[in-house]
Design a protein around this nucleic acid. Structure first.
Lengths: 209, 209
DNA sequence: CTCTGTGAACATCTTCACAGCT
DNA sequence: AGCTGTGAAGATGTTCACAGAG
């Protein structure tokens, strides 16, 4: 399969959201134009994104909503019971642990870790916070697919090293720092301060089209 | 000024992080190569990004760390006391309100709003949660530059409409839905579930280079 | 000789436009 | 006729490679 742009993958995940809306409203088919309007792109973009993975539509009709949603779930790997661990039970870690959207999209939170004794043992949304001491051993049993890192910046690289050593190949990093990994590991960084700075840049320099 | 790519602006904000590290270590100058290694890009990219805004380096020497940091802060608008409001005092809103990184980067949280009476009046990190009833009136006084939306998906568009009506032109949206705004408003979406789906796509289709 | 700054080459992503299926 | 699927054109972003400043 040809290598697909990350921006395309993001849009596919977005399309899926709107297809789920359309399903709720019992809309049987949807055109590339309608999907484009909903997700803020163009119809050509929608068709091109979908065409990388096959021909899901019917000419003259559009795309069958339910069927396309199923296909997108398959492509994105949604509904496979991915096991997720969160490292860092601070404010953001705890907030994420309680985020309903994860379970709704098929992500199973199997453990939360922290090295702060005052946090270890506490229950967050049905999951007990574990001590980092047993991190490596616990990961062997839990075999998570994805790790979410919400530690302070200083601790992030060390945690990421232990995560990758345990064989985890997908990391969502909320620590406000970049981390180095081997090329077979995918890291996505979410950095609040950085997003705000992109906004202030836009305010100062006017990104209005 | 020429229109700069968003990816460039993101990288500039990243460079600034590492420049701040270099400052702490009393490194007087840094080469594009060193900055590139730290931020995971190429030296040519670093030089091109910086060149959009001027010539900050000395040939044969590199860039003066402190000076370049100042320039980047100027470009990104950091240190201007941007006023920020958070709408939605749920788990994520509360976690963000307590996030130290905001203040560290010069963002002032001036208010948190919620429409849930059980939350209104509570204090989060020195800021009292205000009732949405007085939202529009309060915004007139507070004149925030940036609004962070952490409401449920259903409420997001309504809140965004009120925000933009109040003249705010920069929104950081954590609600798991797209929102429509006029073109003079900049919206950045942060969507946890979407990020995880990009990761599972990578796990399934192997994005290793 | 080192390392920046930058046009030009290259690669990637998006939009156009239309052939062809329903 | 309506709308998809897709090569080709166009736009945007990245890398190369080298002239020139220090």
């Amino acid at each position: 399969m040809k290598r697909i742009a990350e921006s395309s993958v993001r849009r596919l995940a977005l399309y899926l959201r709107f297809l789920e809306d359309f399903t709720k409203r019992n809309t049987p088919t949807v055109s590339s134009e309608e999907l484009a309007n909903a997700s803020g792109t163009t119809s050509a973009q929608v068709r091109k994104d979908l065409s990388f993975f096959g021909s899901f539509g019917k000419r003259g009709l559009g795309y069958p909503v339910a069927e396309l949603a199923t296909q997108l779930r398959e492509i994105l790997g949604i509904g496979r019971d991915w096991r997720v661990v969160i490292v860092g039970a601070g404010k953001i870690g705890a907030a994420l642990a309680q985020y309903r959207g994860f379970r709704q999209h098929g992500f199973m939170l199997v453990a939360v870790f922290d090295n702060d004794p005052t946090r270890v043992g506490k229950r967050i949304d049905g999951v007990t916070v574990r001590d980092m001491t047993h991190f490596d051993r616990d990961l062997k049993t839990l075999k998570p697919h994805i790790a979410i890192v919400t530690t302070p910046a200083e601790a992030a690289q060390g945690v990421v090293d232990r995560i990758t050593k345990a064989g985890i190949r997908a990391i969502l990093n909320f620590a406000p720092t970049g981390v180095q990994v081997k090329p077979d590991v995918t890291v996505r960084n979410v950095n609040m301060a950085l997003e705000l700075e992109v906004l202030t840049y836009a305010l100062l320099h006017g990104d209005d089209a």
